[in-house]
């Protein structure tokens, strides 16, 4: 009778062993691969982000002259912008992978944006809006529900004085019939104005940014991405001027 008992005991322990091994293995199954490829950055994208009037007084103070409170504000704004853009793109990719609708991402992104501190959210709102419009909303079938979402992110860009004229041009064209002709024309005029303000600072700010960029390991891609995007922005301004009349 000893043999069956031993058999049961050993079988039970082997079962436990397999179970434990399986659990440890399952722990590695992270939905996001953290073992990023050791390759040089590719497909570099550039977005021009505006600092709206309310935050300009702080952000224009050189970092070396900022008070700790001003520095914390600047850090928070830049960090939020960086985080929100990446988080939005991640949500879009995950939704595509899982076969979820754009409405799911839209809900999540709006909820995320609602959690940022209002005064430092301008970068986050622009980054997330540009990702939502450029990667998800523009180009699809223009049902009223989608137009509502396009209008929401377009309004965020307008409120934050965004100079992303190329994306805004596509958005405003998509909103014809949803917004009145007057509202579209007014938004186009505001975008032209915001873009001109951004470019008026570009002579000074752009050259300083280039100094930083030239010290980065992927400087050629960074400079090239910026040049390409600003060319597209300038082209879009021409079309927006016509739309604003």
């Amino acid at each position: 009778m000893n043999t069956p008992r031993h058999f049961i005991t050993v079988t039970t322990l082997v079962f436990l062993f397999v179970l434990l091994a399986g659990c440890y293995g399952a722990d590695d199954a992270n939905p996001i691969s953290v073992d990023a490829p050791h390759t040089a950055p590719q497909d570099v994208q550039f977005n021009p982000i505006a600092t709206p009037k309310a935050a300009l007084a702080t952000m224009r103070v050189p970092p070396s002259e900022r008070t700790p409170v001003q520095q914390a504000f600047a850090d928070s704004a830049l960090r939020a912008g960086s985080y929100a853009g990446a988080a939005t793109r991640h949500l879009i990719k995950e939704a595509a992978r899982r076969g979820q609708s754009w409405q799911v991402v839209d809900t999540q992104v709006r909820r995320m944006l609602g959690r940022f501190r209002r005064e430092t959210a301008y970068g986050a709102e622009q980054s997330a809006s540009l990702s939502m419009l450029g990667l998800l909303l523009l180009g699809g079938e223009l049902a009223p529900e989608r137009q509502e979402a396009i209008a929401f992110y377009t309004q965020l860009l307008l409120d934050n004085e965004s100079p992303a004229a190329d994306v805004l041009l596509r958005s405003l064209r998509s909103l014809k019939g949803y917004w009145s002709d007057g509202a579209v024309a007014q938004a186009a005029a505001r975008t032209v104005q915001h873009t001109e303000v951004w470019f008026s600072r570009e002579a000074e700010a752009g050259s300083k940014a280039e100094t930083v960029l030239r010290e980065q390991p992927n400087r050629e891609e960074l400079l090239d991405a910026r040049a390409r995007r600003l060319l597209a922005v300038r082209e879009a301004v021409k079309a927006l001027k016509a739309l604003s009349r």
């Binding site: 550039f46 021009p48 951004w198 960029l213």
Partner: peptide, 23 residues
């Protein structure tokens, strides 16, 4: 799986993004 870089000079912010690893 991607990186983000934000540079603020004066009132303008330059947002870069790319896939892979930042150097």
């Amino acid at each position: 799986q991607e990186w983000e870089m934000h540079i603020n000079c004066g009132g303008n912010t330059y947002e870069y993004q790319g896939s892979g690893e930042w150097g």
